[in-house]
Design a binder for these strands. Structure first.
Lengths: 143, 143
DNA sequence: ATCTTATTGAGACGATTTATCAATTTCAAT
DNA sequence: ATTGAAATTGATAAATCGTCTCAATAAGAT
């Protein structure tokens, strides 16, 4: 049984529903993508540079956007680049960031997420992912 | 007394501290900016196109970035563009963002903020600001 | 008023992403 | 297995967004 059978089925379902085709390139990109928490198109391009067949950068972009439409990925614009987040790893997108030394601490808090759901429901939204960043000074930099 | 006296003072304080100058352009852009919840550089460029003096797009970008450094604005990347959020009266700015149509709903939730403080304290951080974005589908786009 | 320094506007530039298009591949129907 | 219509690919051109450059101008201290 392949490593990412569940996600591969989800992709195939989406392809079938939209008269799209299952290609070797899409399989390669899916495999690489599911091993990451998040990745940019450029990073993936270099990661897969040596694979056969050779993958063009345009194909990487097209395929990552396809994953977004299929519900496997979510694009997030950070700085000048676009990060493609792996939805199946979701839940760990929260960060404490020290504005002085740049230190980043990851955390997860179920209570906050419950409250987020409440806010979303109250506004008619269905949340697929979120991003929470707390900026401040870490213990060492406060002195 | 000018409409945005408080914010203008905050800007002047920042300018003074960094040997920067208070120009007619910066005043115009500040006035326009404070009347918005959030705006892109391009939108502001068109809004101010008829003003005297004429404002170059580069100046708009430079000035909005200056506002970020001065703590009056916060940049947020959505879609292909950068939104500059007005954080001058609200100390924070939380968003529900529809990933389909781009609709943005603003909200605030004291309980979430209390929990954020707890997380920060537990990790030795002192928070100065934060960013919370919930991504998903709005009611209209869910069908 | 003068002088130093920051700022401006216009356009060049750089980085990222999308559009174009001929050649190739998929896949359903023979 | 072969065929053939339709989707996909890779290379590159083009578009988009934001920053950089630089000569001219404006701010503000002396």
């Amino acid at each position: 049984m392949p490593k990412h059978a569940k996600e591969m089925e989800a992709l195939k379902a989406h392809l079938g529903k939209h008269q799209l085709k299952y290609t070797r390139q899409r399989e390669l990109i899916l495999d690489a993508f599911l091993q990451q928490e998040h990745i940019t198109a450029e990073e993936m391009y270099h990661q897969l540079a040596k694979k056969d067949p050779h993958l063009g950068l345009a194909t990487i972009y097209r395929t990552l956007n396809l994953f977004c439409e299929a519900g496997l990925a979510q694009a997030r614009h950070f700085g000048t680049q676009t990060q493609y987040d792996n939805i199946s790893h979701k839940g760990h997108h929260d960060h404490l960031i020290c504005t002085d030394c740049g230190k980043i601490v990851e955390f997860e808090n179920c209570e906050i997420e419950k409250l987020q759901e409440e806010v979303a429901t109250r506004n008619g939204f269905t949340i697929s992912t979120h991003r929470l960043e707390l900026y401040g000074l870490c213990g060492r930099c406060r002195h």
